[in-house]
Design a protein around this nucleic acid. Structure first.
Lengths: 304, 304
DNA sequence: AATTGGTTTTATAAATCAAAAAATACACAT
DNA sequence: ATGTGTATTTTTTGATTTATAAAACCAATT
């Protein structure tokens, strides 16, 4: 099943929405609307819908478009699809992981990477651009690239939390901080659902990203894009580090409750209290997380 | 006079050092050492020295290498050289500037940019990567790029200072904050020289970068790379905004005195006091800077 | 022993062209 | 009137070749 980047992403996103009940069974999925949502044209959307059709998540009615299927076995189908679509970004994760495990030299040429991972120049370029953006690689003067140690030391984790403990509460105290009640309600809904059933059923990656989204949305209320940008940046880095971490789901329950507490304070307009709470929340996460890291993996070093 | 990117940069840097008295007249400039300093090979260094030779800043002795010339007219020579070497990164500045002045649409295709600025695909790619890294451009899903408004609104300036007022004093209070006395002495020397004569004689760009360096070095003492990274990032953005600003040199005197006061506090180990002082320093800069911005240029809009 | 000057090798950038992906245009169905 | 299905056009990617920049090497010099 071959298909394009963009179409794959769109397919994945739509399938998420179907499973998240954002689309009800039988509902019409307008290609036009989806295209507008994503800010793209209908071409890749149609491809995506075609993929979902193959996977049995939607049905097509001639000249009327695509509709969410009624069938109950959506979940398995979607999972099969996900598995097929996923590991697209795996090269990136692989390189990041190899670097973290000291399986990559600090300085490399592009050729070296291309040979080692068997990828095209353009693709490698994409990966490196992303790594630069996420702050753990840089171009050397002359030829070659250098990986930065920010992304691998155990203390990095701690440093990230210290950084967040500074900016997140401070952003809330910004004079321009303005609570978007609608977004807040939305966040609350998501966190509630997490507590209800998602923590048990969702994959690690999803849990992490929901948590990160919460913090990123809150910091946006400050109206200062630099707070938001820096948080996004350190979160990306954190994701890299956390990628292969063992974790326990209990901690997520606690964390989610913390999020809800902050939301409730904000609903009541008690920003100062919320800011203080946020600081405690982060400090707590740091204490609990730090010692349990670096326990998994690192046994199987060596070339891929 | 044709030459390569890297050689040009190196030439510029060496000429700075010669003028900054880091190299004395008659002193030997070892190509090997320079190459090591930059982490590059001797090839571009030799080219750079060749350029300086052409400009008369150095002389060559057969089989013994290059030596700083004794002549006194270094300054003019160097300036001529600079002018010739400069505007290499001008494409980048040009695009940033056009965007700030609303002379560019928010969303563009690569083709459009290539035609408009007459650059190769690879070069454009470099520019865009840089813009992404500096946070004012992003790839659209599908085709095309989008420029972000962070880099153009007048409030951006204010927001940057608010952000800095949070992270810079906080970084100083980090438990791991460790003052590098040698670096501090170095910074002091530089700031003193600024007061003595540089403020009168150096170009705006240089003054701005010395100021930024001061803050970036101080924040490094925290040992937390995320503080440093975010500061560097907002400073890059600030440079973009300040690029064509009118400015008065008096303000730089004040600012430099502020820097020296902070240095002296740190020398005496009074970190808390220094942190407080830093906050005031930044807040003062914000008050004075904001109203005088956006006064120059903006008259000559239109295509390049 | 370290450093230069010149030469060779290797790595990346530019140019070109074919292939593919995404955007656009338009007739037609609901 | 809006949305679909299909065809057409534009933009971007990929592969290949050629040119250029930087690194690595080595003999000669201080």
């Amino acid at each position: 099943m071959k298909s394009n980047q963009l179409a794959r992403q769109v397919a994945q996103e739509i399938s998420k929405r179907i499973l998240g009940q954002d689309f009800e069974p039988g509902q019409h999925i307008s290609a036009q609307t989806v295209a507008n949502d994503f800010g793209i044209s209908r071409s890749p959307v149609r491809e995506a819908l075609q993929l979902l059709l193959d996977a049995g998540l939607v049905v097509q009615k001639p000249n009327r478009g695509f509709f969410v299927t009624d069938s109950q076995q959506q979940l398995e189908r979607s999972n099969a699809l996900s598995a097929a679509l996923e590991d697209e970004q795996s090269d990136y994760q692989q390189i990041a992981d190899d670097w973290r495990r000291d399986a990559l030299p600090e300085e490399v040429t592009e050729q070296y990477l291309r040979n080692r991972y068997g990828i095209t120049k353009a693709r490698l370029n994409d990966l490196l651009v992303r790594a630069v953006r996420e702050g753990w690689a840089e171009r050397k003067p002359g030829y070659g690239w250098r990986f930065l140690t920010v992304a691998k030391t155990p203390e990095a984790f701690e440093k990230i939390y210290h950084f967040r403990m500074v900016i997140e509460p401070a952003a809330m105290l910004d004079p321009d901080y303005e609570i978007d009640l609608q977004m807040l309600a939305n966040l609350k809904r998501i966190q509630m659902r997490m507590l209800d059933h998602d923590i048990e059923h969702q994959p690690l990656e999803r849990l992490l990203s929901v948590g990160a989204d919460f913090h990123e949305e809150l910091i946006k209320f400050s109206g200062n894009p630099y707070f938001h940008q820096s948080l996004v940046r350190v979160n990306q880095m954190r994701r890299l580090l956390e990628y292969r971490t063992v974790f326990n789901r209990e901690r997520f329950v606690e964390q989610t409750q913390g999020h809800l507490a902050i939301i409730e304070l904000l609903e009541r307009g008690e920003i100062i209290e919320a800011s203080y709470n946020m600081r405690r929340h982060l400090s707590g996460a740091l204490k609990k997380k730090s010692p349990m890291l670096w326990s998994q993996d690192d046994a199987n070093l060596g070339k891929p």
